[in-house]
């Protein structure tokens, strides 16, 4: 059985997920920076839809004109969809940033990132283990 470590689905998915998480960290930082800006609306990225995309087993098929072209890609898009979060109460200044919600999202994102980096690390350890003939370095 041929194992291709460097075109690993798990690595691709974890990498894309980490990319999304760092984008989300930007959004949360933006919400927190504008916590006192009149009229600012809380924003978020389409996060769960993203996981749905990653989990779908139906890859995107690209039109190819030559046999060497990449035909199938896993549907990981680098751009998340941005939207204003509905249903939040806004104060008199029409700003609806909720500090507790944002702090929760902040640690949630950091935790997810840490988790993903452990998974990627584990993957590379597997490679290192086979290089070292099974000895744990």
């Amino acid at each position: 059985m041929k194992v291709d470590f460097f075109h690993d689905q798990t690595l691709d998915a974890a990498g894309a997920y980490m990319g999304r998480l760092s984008q989300r960290q930007q959004i949360v930082a933006s919400n927190l920076a504008n916590i006192d800006t009149p009229g600012y609306k809380t924003k978020d990225s389409s996060f769960h839809a993203t996981m749905q995309e990653l989990l779908s087993d139906d890859p995107v098929t690209l039109r190819t004109s030559r046999p060497g072209h990449a035909g199938k890609l896993t549907p990981i898009v680098s751009q998340a969809q941005m939207f204003e979060v509905p249903g939040l109460d806004s104060g008199a200044d029409l700003n609806n940033v909720d500090i507790d919600r944002e702090m929760m999202k902040l640690s949630e994102t950091a935790f997810g990132y840490s988790l993903m980096s452990q998974i990627v690390r584990g993957k590379f350890r597997t490679i290192a283990s086979s290089i070292n003939e099974g000895r744990v370095s």
């Binding site: 930082a29 916590i35 702090m103």
Partner: peptide
């Protein structure tokens, strides 16, 4: 608000550290 922003900066730093630890 200052503390909240500080926390955001610290967590982003921590995330970068995690990347380096891979």
């Amino acid at each position: 608000s200052y503390e909240a922003n500080l926390q955001a900066v610290n967590l982003a730093k921590e995330m970068q550290q995690k990347t380096l630890e891979i």
